[in-house]
Design a protein around this nucleic acid. Structure first.
Lengths: 110, 110
DNA sequence: TGCATATGTCAGAAATACCTGACATATGCA
DNA sequence: TGCATATGTCAGGTATTTCTGACATATGCA
């Protein structure tokens, strides 16, 4: 593994964040083209903004991306989003090591 | 990566198979204790058999486990299930390389 | 002022995923 | 024969996730 995965819940959150075609495309796009603002990214990936927001939220909670507001040259507020590099070697062994610290119990929000 | 992941859909299927606490525990249990038959595994992981079947189906479709019927010493039919070792290094780069071969389009069953 | 661009949030619908309880069948053993 | 163990499948319900359309607000520019 690598990226500060402390508990089984962290691993699960990462896996769940990745288990969706739109989110894989979002990560792929950011990986290839670097930082992009929300509307730009929505066009790049081909989905609506509201939907993109939903997916960005999950990616952010999993620690896969990061975002912040910034002013563009022409004075518009842009939410810039970029990747937070990660590197996890998925294997039965890794999973065995993290399974014990799996909380479960349906408690979502934080 | 490693395990014969050919397309983005394969990657997505693997990630989706892992994105569930029960399934992580199933993989962990099989990784630790080796081959187990269904009823045994259900007790080990602490879930009902019908539910276990559902999860095993997803794991099998993702190529993470394998199973077959075998006779026990006392003549009972047992479905033995075991892990098919895998080893995938998840990273933005890997995802960028697989994102193009993502089918999506809601077509499930095979 | 009117149009284009951007952010951010909702309610409610549609689609999936997840789970339980019940049922049917088969073997070994007391 | 009756009990325990095992496999395998279903209908039906609940819970989550995913997605759309509408709204409100702000800036720059013609």
């Amino acid at each position: 593994m690598s990226n500060a995965l402390a508990t089984g819940d962290d691993l699960l959150r990462l896996l769940a964040a990745m288990a969706n075609p739109h989110r894989l495309r979002i990560v792929a796009a950011l990986s290839r083209y670097g930082v992009r603002h929300v509307s730009d990214l929505a066009r790049l990936v081909g989905i609506s903004r509201p939907l993109l927001y939903l997916h960005l939220e999950k990616l952010e909670q999993a620690g896969v991306i990061h975002s912040h507001l910034a002013l563009s040259d022409d004075g518009k507020a842009l939410r810039q989003v970029g990747i937070l590099p990660f590197h996890v070697t998925l294997s039965p062994d890794l999973i065995a090591r993290f399974a014990d610290t799996l909380t479960d119990f349906k408690e979502k929000k934080g």
